[in-house]
């Protein structure tokens, strides 16, 4: 379980997270929506420790992420992350992209790592692209490659940072389909997203962020059907 308590994050003088309190249970799918600059992506980066925080705590399965002496490299094996700009490693084939971390981080044998990688690529529908370099893949395929790469570490949680925002419209569907599949398999997911349809259909809860504050959180039916905060109402009206 992920527990976030009174979390504050500053970029210099800019106060981007203003006291976030949030629990995410195992097996839950949480969508985080809100305007650009509302702090929702930053929240993800504080959960796996890619961004330090100035106040408050993030605890993942009992491990305080930002405490001194926390082994972040070990913790990050529990937290898969998928980025907006997919960030595939261009000098490695699809198979090597996925097999690298299991091999050098988890110490799996080469054969074992390749087996895991092949299975995960098949899982996301790239079973016929094992030996292809990312430059020969579409954006949607590269994003699915990134998902397979994160899954190969057998994480407990998956963090999606606007996984479809940089894709051409016709490629969004295949990535959302893959995310939907993971949700159905019971993966715990936090999805920062602008895809309102996905947030409504797939999430257990939806959180709305506005200027560094989590203004509202609840089941999708309530957030989309009966938003309480004025900002949520305005945002959703414009998003439709």
């Amino acid at each position: 379980m992920i527990e976030i308590r009174d979390l504050h994050k500053y970029f210099g003088a800019l106060h981007v997270l203003k006291g976030i309190d949030l629990d995410v249970e195992k097996g839950e799918v949480l969508s985080v929506i809100g305007a650009s600059g509302s702090g929702k992506s930053t929240l993800l980066y504080t959960i796996n420790g890619l961004e330090p925080v100035q106040q408050g705590r993030v605890v993942v399965d009992g491990v305080d992420v930002h405490a001194k002496g926390t082994d972040l490299n070990k913790l990050r094996q529990r937290l898969g992350m998928v980025f907006q700009q997919w960030n595939s490693f261009p000098h490695l084939t699809a198979l090597e992209n996925v097999a690298l971390a299991p091999k050098i981080v988890k110490g799996k044998s080469k054969a074992e790592a390749r087996e895991i990688a092949a299975a995960q690529l098949k899982h996301v529908g790239l079973g016929d692209k094992l030996n292809v370099y990312p430059s020969a893949l579409s954006g949607g395929q590269q994003q699915r490659l990134a998902i397979a790469r994160a899954l190969a570490m057998e994480p407990e949680y998956m963090l999606f940072d606007e996984a479809t925002s940089a894709l051409d419209p016709e490629l969004v569907g295949e990535v959302l389909e893959t995310m939907r599949m993971l949700a159905e398999e019971g993966m715990t997911m936090i999805c920062v997203t602008h895809e309102m349809g996905f947030a409504r259909d797939v999430s257990d809860r939806v959180a709305f962020f506005h200027q560094g504050v989590m203004e509202e959180i609840g089941p999708p039916s309530q957030i989309f059907g009966d938003p309480q905060s004025e900002h949520t109402q305005k945002f959703l009206a414009n998003a439709r």
């Binding site: 796996n48 890619l50 490299n73 070990k74 990050r76 094996q77 937290l79 898969g80 992350m81 980025f83 700009q85 960030n87 490693f89 261009p90 000098h91 690298l100 971390a101 050098i104 981080v105 988890k106 990134a146 790469r149 994160a150 570490m153």
Partner: peptide, 28 residues
């Protein structure tokens, strides 16, 4: 920098990210 971030998010150490991800690309 996002290449390093992606590598670190997979649990690689800073040195591993440099040796496995950054330097091979720099070489090219």
């Amino acid at each position: 920098d996002t290449q390093i971030r992606a590598a670190r998010s997979l649990g690689m150490s800073a040195v591993q990210a440099y040796v496995r991800i950054v330097i091979p690309q720099v070489l090219r």
